[in-house]
Design a protein around this nucleic acid. Structure first.
Lengths: 206, 206
DNA sequence: TAGATTGTTAATCGATTAACAATC
DNA sequence: TAGATTGTTAATCGATTAACAATC
């Protein structure tokens, strides 16, 4: 499965779910492409990577595609996850409903600040970071959302690795160099704004 | 400038800034590549896109590269920005220091909830959304950070467009189909977790 | 000089697009 | 049947990598 395709799979999934919410049963590659800014050919080629799902003359059945994409992404099951760092951002993310609906369940939260440890956010009690290894093992947590300050990120990440976590979603603006066995996806808000600034500048030049 | 290169520019910038903080004056393509998981050839090829900056036998001067990358991205100036939506996520983002340091200054914040409008976050008073067009014009705001609920995003985005904003950083999990004159960068936290889940599943299969 | 490292060419690899027969 | 749409081939385009002469 080409990695360019995988990165679009989540995009297709989100759009297909919106289509189903609006009571669409089927969608053509042309219409789906237009919604997402892709060509019809690209949509069909992407879907062809995992089988023949289309109905010539009709299009694709939304529900069928959704199921298939979730299976490929691995979100046809529930992933237990941990929120690591419950400051501003961590608290906001704990309140985000979108994780749950897409197959993720935040089942533990950690911090080290005395005024945060022990408090409750969205029905989840914040534990001390020291108890992370035990809780991760006990609850079978595989994914961690890392929302600690930049200067703590590398150290905390190594605790995550030692605890046996297999994936880290990193919100700290630092490069995490973890063992190959652990996957990392980084989200850097300043970097995203930079890309936006570039797009605006470029458009201005044209 | 190839767009694959642009997306790495922010990554180079962040790493170079970290190197400068650690008192490094120069860095070779091999070392920088190793830090970021890229090949030395790719690093050199990327930098070659915007001139000859390297010193054979020595490497690249960090400060010089930083200046050049900021100039290209357009972050050698300050971009006035607006936070649109000051719920959980918006408030957390207002508290984030990283924007400021990279060339972005959030100079206005908006919401519609009566208990939020008028309150203060990080020294910024939240205005009612109705006053957005006037404030955007007055302060010359070009970028908006959209942190409203999914079902409000499209409507609010169209207000942004009418107000003359040229770039939107969209945190709502919906596709924004805006005029070509407006740039959009989307950050969808559930999508990022899906990509992480896929990476973990794939690794497990190998 | 010897060692380190760049800039660049040519080769390879992967992704996108155009076109169209096959299908419903 | 006519119209809509898929799946797939071949062509094009863009990005990455290997190799190495040139430079400090």
């Amino acid at each position: 499965m080409p990695k360019a395709v995988v990165s679009r799979l989540s995009l297709y999934l989100r759009e297909l779910q919106a289509l189903v919410r609006d009571d669409n049963k089927t969608i053509s590659s042309t219409k789906l492409g237009r919604l997402l800014g892709l060509t019809d050919t690209q949509v069909r080629k992407d879907f062809a990577c995992f089988g023949q799902f289309g109905y010539p003359g009709i299009g694709y059945r939304c529900e069928e595609l959704i199921g298939e994409i979730r299976r490929i992404l691995g979100t046809d099951r529930i992933w237990p996850a941990a929120m690591v760092g419950c400051g501003n951002l961590g608290q906001a993310l704990l309140g985000y409903r979108g994780f749950q609906s897409q197959g993720f369940s935040v089942q533990a939260a950690f911090d080290i600040a005395p005024d945060i440890v022990g408090s409750n956010f969205c029905g989840l009690k914040v534990d001390h970071l020291d108890s992370l290894p035990a809780v991760v093992a006990e609850k079978g947590i595989q994914l961690a959302i890392l929302a600690v300050p930049a200067d703590a990120a590398i150290e905390v990440a190594s605790i995550l690795v030692k605890s046996g976590v297999s994936g880290v979603l990193n919100f700290a603006p630092v490069t995490l160099n973890l063992p190959k066995s652990v996957s990392v996806v980084g989200v850097d808000l300043a970097m995203e704004l930079e890309q936006l600034a570039f797009a605006v500048v470029k458009k201005g030049e044209k």
